[in-house]
Nucleic acid binder design. Structure first.
Length: 831
RNA sequence: GCGAGAGUGGCGGAAUUGGUAGACGCGCUGGUCUUAGGAACCAGUAUCUCUGAUGUGUGGGUUCGAGUCCCUCCUCUCGCACCA
């Protein structure tokens, strides 16, 4: 501003954005320190997978986070706002394979490129805390945690039917199977029996469920989804003695009140008792064939449609302990081994699946619960009756209501020793074994004499082999790399084999937010002091697509970390904002649709601030954002208008009179609007981060500024008021368009840096309107509008309304039945 | 099928506790300045049979008054889906 060079007529964002980014970097403006007197605030956006370049979804996500970070700094918080890379995963292997390179090289090059992109957006991260999860500096601590969890009995190994993706050549967790297909490649998954490592997330099922109620800062929707996923149900576990054998079959039901309506038993094809049951029945071959057939079918099964219910009599019977009735045992395709006990007492009268099954195989249907005012006749029923009612044909429980019968029946089972109440969860343990290369190695050793032995923590990290063991194929899975596998048993020092499974990449993202508190700590996974200072994350921001997977795993890990003594908190994210997708032409951006918008190109053309402003302005954050090229143009236009106003303001060089006597009406109007804007802007951000309406308020204030300083008007606002308005406008907009506001701040000649300002306060008195527009309605229809003093009394207001010409016309001498007066709003005259 | 959310101009979207429907922006129309303008600025912009009437997916209800509350139906989006 000291040199006399005239300002360009168009805001030249390129040098300006570069200048401020360099300045923030060299000053270390956003470095978070632990020793601060200010209250801490931890804002975090879901870190990206380094796929190559950022997309518009990232731009939106990180812009929202940056506004929160900068806003909270201006509000006087000690803000932690870090960024890192979710860097393990299959795409790196695929890319490496394709380009004959190494996954690490590919990954780190992507990170370098994407980091530069994020810096170009002017995001206020504390880059000193950055890390990539594929670095041994990170995953060695994950391996350490693995060992500690193993020690605590939270990790075990088992053989189960897993979801196998042929394309990815690996196992997937239940959560990673979406509509029967792989979440990453969309290929249909197949069941397969394999042994693998499991995290005992079910040990925390109850806490994961009950703590949801305390997450008041989370969207209802996400809480509900997690509740459903955990899927708690309470009921009766009960043993049915097999006739002629010492074994009993254990069942689980949520409808113990229907136990007298049991007419057969269904067990899963994988039920462990199956072989014992069929032995000696003469039906062995037929059953085995049937089971085989079902398994084949499941392999080919199209997940979209439910297969027809099928079953086969095993040749055995069991005894219903409640009425001593002998019922046939069937093996059936619709019984899941993974839920409950893998065996179901079948009550066709009151369960739709059992009903269909019974009709198909002409098994008896016995109604035992009558809903009020209904009569159930087995012969004519078309569907099962699932509503509660009064019990019939139920021995001593007849006459009881469903609800009371349930507890009475459970109690009966308990006291007679053949059953008890049982809580089951839909949630299963988290299978974390992946059979690939680019992941964190599981720190275990298989020894022929000692069995499975953990790698001692002082021997960590177990690093990924860097050199190819198999020529020209860098991405051979660990299981095909003899150099990695060969090791010595930590216990007996004999030759042994390393575990070749790697951990699911969701493990990395389950605790990265805690590591940000102390990313350079070298003694332990977490520095207890720093992590307890920063955690929990006050505001977490990311896509709703992670509502179950990542957020559930992170909650689980947080509880584990707490129990291992690393954290004080049991929940990782106090407040969660799930932002909507960025769409174009009504569809999600995708290469195949050809509707992808490239952030690089946009930033190049319009600058980071314009892109940021538009993505904040076009929709509230939780909703989908329709990308609109002309809308971006509009955002750019707004900044340019402000720019031109400020350079002309700066060029006028007029001395600022210290007067604030508001000699002119425009001064008063501008001053009032300014205070109203500060109030609205603050509310909009504080309640739900509605930046779109905040920005529109800022635009209104700017429009008022133009209007009240228009030279064509007889009177203009005084320079002191104008200056104060500009000053506050720049502070308000700073979190959204930081480069622009910083530059304008310096052009306008304000002292210090914008970073060091305080968020402006508003004055309720100054924001109050002297005059308000009152609507006059006759019979609820708007007939007129009048301007009155805002503090006018109800009586006077009513009088004014009746004096109004338009109102009089519509009253037209009719008798007035009622008058409703709402101060500062309206008068409704009913005739 | 179950659960959750959403339907407002040509478009994105605004509307404290029920109280001026359409803020702000885009687009469009007309104008000013210009050799020119896809620049900038000014004015207008829900619809119609226009002193008035009609308008927030449909149909009803409550109310002096409903985008907002209640019921019915329709459409769309998302999540779950043989969970006993």
């Amino acid at each position: 501003m000291n040199d006399s060079k005239p300002f360009p007529t168009k805001y030249d964002f390129k040098p300006v954005e570069k200048k401020w980014q360099d300045s923030w970097t060299s000053l270390g403006s956003y470095k978070a320190e632990e020793n601060s007197l200010k209250e801490k605030y931890y804002v975090l956006e879901m870190f990206p997978y380094p796929s190559g370049r950022i997309h518009m979804g990232h731009v939106r996500n990180y812009t929202i986070g940056d506004v929160v970070a900068r806003y909270k700094r201006l509000r006087g918080f000690n803000v932690l706002h870090p960024m890192g890379w979710d860097a393990f995963g299959l795409p790196a292997e695929n890319a490496a394979q394709k380009n004959n390179t190494h996954p690490a090289k590919w990954t780190y090059e992507n990170i370098d490129y994407m980091r530069a992109q994020l810096k170009q957006l002017g995001l206020s991260y504390d880059w000193s805390r950055e890390f990539a999860t594929c670095s041994p500096d990170y995953y060695r601590w994950e391996q350490q945690l693995f060992l500690e969890m193993y020690e605590k009995g939270l990790i075990y190994r088992k053989i189960t039917t897993v979801n196998w993706c042929n394309t990815c050549q690996t196992v997937l967790a239940n959560e990673q199977v979406i509509e029967g297909a792989c979440w990453r490649c969309d290929e249909l998954v197949h069941p397969r029996n394999m042994s693998g490592w499991f995290f005992k997330i079910t040990a925390y099922a109850e806490e994961l469920l009950s703590d949801l109620d305390a997450l008041t800062g989370w969207p209802e929707k996400v809480v509900t989804m997690q509740k459903n996923w955990i899927g708690k149900s309470t009921g009766l576990r009960c043993d049915f003695q097999v006739a002629g054998l010492p074994e009993a079959i254990s069942i689980f039901t949520t409808r113990p009140d229907t136990v007298f309506g049991v007419t057969f038993m269904s067990i899963a094809t994988e039920h462990p008792l199956l072989e014992t049951l069929i032995a000696g029945t003469g039906r062995e071959e037929a059953i085995r064939l049937f089971v085989e057939e079902i398994h084949e079918e499941k392999l080919r099964q199209n997940i979209e449609e439910e297969p027809e219910k099928k079953g086969l009599f095993t040749g055995r019977y069991c005894i219903n302990p409640f009425n001593n009735e002998k019922i046939p045992i069937y093996v059936a395709n619709f019984v899941l081994m993974g839920y409950g006990t893998g065996a179901v007492m079948a009550v066709p009268a009151h369960d739709q699946r059992d009903f269909e099954f019974a009709r198909k195989y002409t098994l008896p249907i016995v109604p035992v619960v009558l809903p009020e005012g209904q009569i159930l006749q087995a012969q004519v029923m078309e569907t099962a009756s699932t509503i509660p009612g009064k019990l019939v044909n139920s021995g001593s429980f007849t006459g009881l209501d469903s609800v009371e019968a349930q507890s009475a029946i459970i109690e009966h089972a308990r006291s007679h020793g053949f059953g008890d109440s049982l809580v089951t969860y839909r949630l299963r343990d988290w299978g974390i074994s992946r059979q690939r290369y680019w992941g964190a190695p599981i720190p275990m050793v298989h020894c022929d004499s000692c069995g499975i032995v953990p790698v001692p923590s002082e021997k960590l990290p177990v690093t990924l082999p860097e050199d190819p063991d198999i020529s020209k194929n860098e991405c051979a899975p660990l299981s095909q790399r003899p150099g990695f596998i060969r090791t010595r048993c930590p216990r007996c020092d004999e030759e042994a084999r390393r575990e070749t499974d790697t951990m699911d990449t969701f493990v990395e993202s389950s605790w990265y937010f805690a590591r940000f508190a102390c990313s350079d700590y070298r003694q332990d996974p977490l520095d207890r002091k720093k992590s307890s200072y920063w955690l929990a994350v006050d505001q977490y921001i990311g896509g709703v697509e992670h509502a179950i997977l990542h957020l559930l795993y992170s909650r689980f890990f947080t509880k584990v970390l707490r129990d291992l003594g690393y954290l004080d908190v049991g929940e990782p994210f106090t407040n969660l904002l799930t932002q909507g997708m960025v769409i174009k032409d009504g569809a999600k951006m995708s290469k195949s649709k050809g509707n992808v918008v490239d952030p690089d190109q946009l930033i190049n053309q319009y600058g980071a601030d314009t892109v940021r402003l538009f993505s904040l302005f076009a929709a509230p954050p939780e909703r989908d954002l329709e990308w609109n090229a002309q809308g971006v143009e509009g955002a750019s236009r707004f900044l340019n208008r402000v720019y031109r106003y400020i350079i002309s303001f700066a060029e006028q060089q007029g001395g600022v009179a210290a007067q604030t006597d508001f000699a002119s009406e425009p001064s008063r109007a501008l001053h009032r609007k300014m205070h109203q804007t500060i109030r609205k802007f603050t509310f909009d951000i504080e309640n739900d981060f509605h930046f779109n309406t905040a920005i529109s308020a800022a635009m209104e204030l700017f429009n008022t500024l133009l209007l009240t300083t228009d030279e064509n008007n007889a009177e203009q606002a005084e320079r002191s008021v104008v200056m104060e308005t500009i000053r506050n406008l720049l502070v308000l907009l700073y979190p959204m368009v930081p480069h622009f506001c910083s530059e304008m701040w310096s052009i306008a000649g304000f002292a210090q840096s914008l970073d060091q300002q305080n968020w402006p306060a508003w004055d309720e008195d100054a924001a109050r309107e002297d005059l308000v527009t009152i609507v006059i309605q006759v019979n609820g229809k708007v007939r007129s509008r009048i301007e009155v003093e805002s503090d006018i009394s109800a009586e006077a207001l009513e009088k004014e309304a009746f004096a109004d010409e338009n109102a009089k016309r519509f009253i037209a001498g009719k008798p007035v039945k009622k008058v409703v007066v709402v101060q500062k709003k309206l008068v409704n005259i009913v005739v």
